[in-house]
Design a binder for these strands. Sequence first.
RNA 1: CGGGGCGUAGCGCAGUGGGUAGCGCGCAGCGUUCGGGACGCUGAGGUCGGAGGUUCAAAUCCUCUCGCCCCGACCA
Length: 527
Amino acid sequence: MPLGWRVLKKIENIIREEMDKAGGQELMLPVLQPFELWQQSGRYVSFGKSLFTLTDRKEYTLALGPTHEEVITDLVHRYVQSYRELPLLLYQIQTKLRDEPRPRGGLLRVREFIMKDLYSFDADETGLDKSYQSMCQAYSNIYARLGLPTMIVEADSGAIGGKDSHEFMVITETGEDEVIYCSNCGYAANAEKAQSAKTRGDAETPLPLEEIATPEAKTIQEVADFIGVPTKQTLKAVFYFADGEFVFVIIRGDLEVNETKLRNALKCSELRLATEGEVNEAGLVAGFASPIGVKGVKVVADDSITSGFNFIVGANKPGYHLKNANYPRDFQVDLIADIALAQSGDSCPKCRGKLSLARGIEVGHVFKLGTFISERFGASFLDNDGTSRPIVMGCYGIGLGRLLAAIVERSHDDKGIIWSLSVAPYQVYLCPLHLDKPAVLPTAEKIYQELQKEGIDVLFDDRDDSPGVKFNDADLLGIPLRLTLSPRTLQSQSVEAKWRTEKEAQLLPLENLAAGINRLLGGKLAQ
RNA sequence: CGGGGCGUAGCGCAGUGGGUAGCGCGCAGCGUUCGGGACGCUGAGGUCGGAGGUUCAAAUCCUCUCGCCCCGACCA
């Protein structure tokens, strides 16, 4: 734990340096926040149960900050009055609390985590674009300094709200997010946001509806096989409950529903699949349902229903389907939107290339908030023409613990972690062998003193253990540079230096050792 | 909240046709070893998650309960 904390502090400092360089000013906001602020923004609804709340002795309700748009906007609205005070970039590095439905993955997803959150305040969209750009650049710098390759992807803005949003993803098998990307044109998006080009069928003459018996064929695959058509020639029905309302969703048979897109289209916060019992209660037949002739139920369609003609749909009675269903000739819908899940192998919406899928860890997320929150808090300023305008906001977050977990995930081997010099808990591992032999321990102690005096970040392994044990621990901890001192190296008045990443070692003279090591470290950093 | 799994020594696990609880690692002592996780001997350590029940007898069978992990809806 102490070692992990050292790493976290180093990560924190790198982030702080880059934020400062980008013009950010650090401050510290309260964790304990009046619940009214969340009512004022309306976001206590979208955050739902994730927002921790508590009551104080006066029965006053407080929230534990899951993020700080409310608090900081409230603050800024009290102090900023003129366009001359903009742009303003404020940030903090602080513990966030969220009552996550399911914490997991060690540090990847926890209810209490340290986050750097920066908020930008600009006079207009152009200013926001500039702040957004400079934050993206700062984030790229941070990941580069951490030695962590990331991919920028388009993202859904979720509970935070707002318009444009991008995530920084570390691609790894163990990631909990899915990224859809096109290696042809560079399009990349979180799977919950990703679009795909829905290929259009050739124009066909709409044929009259025709009922056909399809006994035992309930799933789309079974129906398509039974009739002998591809699944994209069918429409499938899926049923949800959105904030307690039953919703009939219709989508082309070869596509899947993207629940995030559906939630956004419906503007609802709770969304779940309906049970078979609830489907029956709504007067529908699971497996043989279609919107044709259905009344009194909200129908939402994916825009793929306009991409073809003469679809196969359910007949709303067991054992039968209908051929040649056409929208809008045969049925109407309440809402039509893109609610389809983009999948690996689909066509890229930009260039029609093939889309691929990868898993990733989200290590940073930036949003263009716009004026949504500032309007609710009356955070406005007087422009140079004398009119009052709402401040245009952006927010930018990086989870530190998750970043640490992502680094370890990306940089380890069968022996343990491999830290880069920039974040390693210590840069040098001082490892004397045969402590009982003359001169070894005293020399090691002298070296330790000397290196510390020179400001070298060194960990001293003074345990009386066998070489194997000590070497393996050094590898496990992943300290970049290992110094071995033993009777053997003492014979030539030297120590052995070995990089964690390399197989071969080199000898360094004891004379001016600190200088020699600084040279080695400097050379490595320059790489 | 829905689905699956697990609770036995510090850690990882075995042990169910009921019969007084075992292995590996780790830990303590002594000795030999020691430039890639050495070995021998000795030793410490367990209310078998909890409560109730069946039985002469329960880690094992029955009922209830608590906790943890994994997979889904959430996100830095």
